[in-house]
Design a binder for these strands. Structure first.
Lengths: 155, 155
DNA sequence: CAATCTATTTAGAATCAGTATAATATCAGA
DNA sequence: TCTGATATTATACTGATTCTAAATAGATTG
């Protein structure tokens, strides 16, 4: 069950293109820095923090600044291409890069986040649309508890 | 639909007792400061930040320190009595104090959080328990989009 | 009750995340 | 190429969160 399989090359490419298209549609320039951030977000399954994104992209772009990373993820978040999650322990945020409806199981002890897919999630979307005037772009589900590891460890 | 009705006195009392019991069960002392934090969390529907909790409790406890607030919410979070949410705009965290399964609709423009209840949420719980080895304490659903207000305003 | 041990609180310092600013660079279009 | 708008960068700044050491309060034991 855990952990999720690494995304296929096709899937990475599709997510990457989707992010670029979202930026294009909203009239943002496709700068090399933004493209690098998008590419990293498309290929990772690690729910990265802004700092992790910064260091990863720095490998290709030694001059990139944190501000550019923050700008880019803020835009992508507003466009609904990524989702902001609490990182646990109040230490900033993480980003969910898989926006297909699924469940994040967060371990309240070690903070790790696991992905699980469920059936019939469209039904939730339908109910929200019926009951509210919200213009929904995406949604996801978070579960909290102890992961298999932390259930047995006692520290 | 919006906003949620204020919680009844009975409901406040029940939530308050539940938090105190959780602390007791986990062998934490019921200090006056912790009790005051719990009481505020039980009576609010505002998804407060640590700072808001601090100022609210300070009214009754002028000497309380921020560290005590942070300690208490961290414990309550580990016990599953409250849920940490990203506050939007990267400005720290907020806490969901209503742990009955429901939906938080977060407006990606103004950052406000709305509560909505849905049917058949037990089914999600069942699916998670069937498919994973997680020991789940609670879960909730987050939706993202534009609230009715922000759909019409253009700034 | 006194002595002791541990958990908790407090104030303040330190750290870290995130934002704002101003100068520079890049890009698109005339 | 020139011009204007947008984006990036480095750095300074603000505010959120954590850490630390000392003081306090509660529980426990003799």
């Amino acid at each position: 069950m855990f952990p999720s399989a690494a995304p296929s090359q096709d899937h990475i490419q599709a997510r990457y293109e989707a992010m670029l298209n979202a930026l294009r549609r909203a009239d943002y320039r496709l700068t090399p820095q933004r493209m690098a951030v998008c590419h990293y977000l498309a290929e990772t399954r690690s729910h990265p923090t802004p700092s992790e994104i910064f260091h990863a992209v720095k490998e290709q772009f030694p001059t990139i600044s944190r501000a550019t990373v923050y700008n880019t993820v803020t835009v992508l978040k507003e466009l609904g291409e990524i989702i902001e999650l609490p990182a646990g322990g109040g230490t900033g945020v993480r980003y969910e890069t898989d926006i297909t409806p699924h469940v994040n199981l967060t371990c309240t002890r070690c903070g790790r986040i696991y992905d699980v897919s469920l059936d019939n999630l469209e039904d939730i979307l339908k109910q929200i649309n019926e009951r509210t005037d919200f213009q929904l772009t995406n949604f996801h589900i978070e579960g909290y508890g102890l992961c298999p590891n932390c259930q047995t460890s006692n520290s």
